[in-house]
């Protein structure tokens, strides 16, 4: 490749990087919009920042925050467990297991989660009494549906069962992204199918599973706000109860939005950590990323034009 280099060249050539005038125009527009927005946020008294920050640590808001966080966590755990089971059924050799899993997905993805929430909350209308026992046999346990289905259990069922259907597809995508050769290689060194799944398949599938699951978790955090329809006192419902009394609607919605933003930021950071963990052995993606200065995006490669050998 270097055959054309002339040994008698007096000086080394200087390379100058391309300029990007379009980027500078973009930056100017963004700065203009940003400063206008910032100015209005700071000077418009109707935002009532005093009220916003006054309610930030209100006991009712904090209690709602706890409910939202716990509900998100429980619904996601239920969803992940269901998702793994449903995805395994969906790639199983049994036609009946595959069909059952498919039917579940069809139903829970095919109806609005809001309907599912209200449905679970009103389960007592369809089944006033619940009993656990063998079909046609005597009951081991019986009880009133309305004692079991509280707003909280209805919310967990509605959100978790619905989430399971979505996560099933995410987990399945992860499983089929791992080439068959990996299963064969694991089998050839004498790993059982369970060992192969845990040690070989799942760690590789996780690269595909984690990003959309992070998305789902952040989505779930906000979907939990739907439980206000069944009168469960989550973050949004707590704020609604307060502004129904004080009519400070906008400041209270800003207040809870700040909390939602904080929680989603924490979740995004956590997702980044998990992704980096599973990027072992993979070039690109998040694995070998170099630190870049904020202006690197403007100037191109982040490395100023220089002399190339």
């Amino acid at each position: 490749m270097t055959t054309s280099l002339r040994t008698d060249a007096p000086t080394e050539p200087v390379f100058v990087a391309r300029r990007h005038p379009g980027r500078w125009v973009g930056v100017c527009v963004i700065v203009a919009i940003g400063s206008a927005l910032g100015y209005s946020l700071a000077t418009n008294p109707r935002f009532q920042w005093g009220v916003v920050f006054g309610y930030l640590f209100d006991p009712q808001i904090i209690a709602g925050l706890g409910t939202t966080g716990a509900l998100t966590a429980i619904a996601m755990v239920l969803g992940i467990v269901l998702g793994v089971v449903l995805a395994t059924m969906r790639v199983s050799g049994s036609r009946i297991l595959r069909a059952a899993s498919g039917l579940y997905l069809w139903f829970f993805r095919g109806t609005p989660v809001l309907v599912q929430l209200i449905f679970w909350y009103n389960l007592g209308y369809l089944y006033p009494d619940l009993r656990i026992g063998l079909p046609f046999g005597s009951a081991l346990w019986t009880g009133q549906t309305n004692d079991v289905i509280t707003p909280l259990t209805a919310a967990i069922l509605g959100l978790g069962l619905n989430e399971g259907a979505y996560l099933a597809e995410i987990v399945r995508a992860g499983l089929i992204s791992v080439p068959d050769g990996q299963r064969e290689a694991a089998a050839s060194i004498g790993l059982t199918r369970l060992q192969a799944f845990r040690r070989i398949i799942l760690p590789q599938a996780m690269r595909v599973i984690v990003p959309p699951t992070g998305n789902e978790t952040i989505g779930m955090l906000k979907t939990t706000s739907m439980v206000s329809v069944i009168a469960l006192a989550d973050l949004l419902y707590s704020a609604q109860q307060i502004y129904a009394r004080t009519f400070e609607t906008i400041p209270l919605l800003i207040c809870v939005s700040l909390w939602y933003l904080l929680l989603t930021s924490v979740l995004s950071v956590g997702q980044g950590w998990i992704e980096r963990h599973y990027a072992r052995g993979v070039r690109g993606a998040t694995g070998y990323r170099r630190r870049r200065t904020p202006f690197a995006a403007l100037t191109g490669t982040g490395r100023r034009a220089g002399v190339r050998p």
């Binding site: 080439p179 050769g181 990996q182 064969e184 290689a185 694991a186 089998a187 050839s188 060194i189 004498g190 790993l191 059982t192 070989i200 760690p203 590789q204 599973y278 072992r280 052995g281 993979v282």
Partner: peptide, 22 residues
């Protein structure tokens, strides 16, 4: 079956190394 396979090594055309392990 895994116990039987432990006695039989295999080398594949496409190597099939585990990419997440050193």
């Amino acid at each position: 079956l895994c116990r039987q396979r432990r006695r039989i090594g295999m080398v594949f055309q496409d190597f099939n190394l585990f990419p997440h392990l050193t």
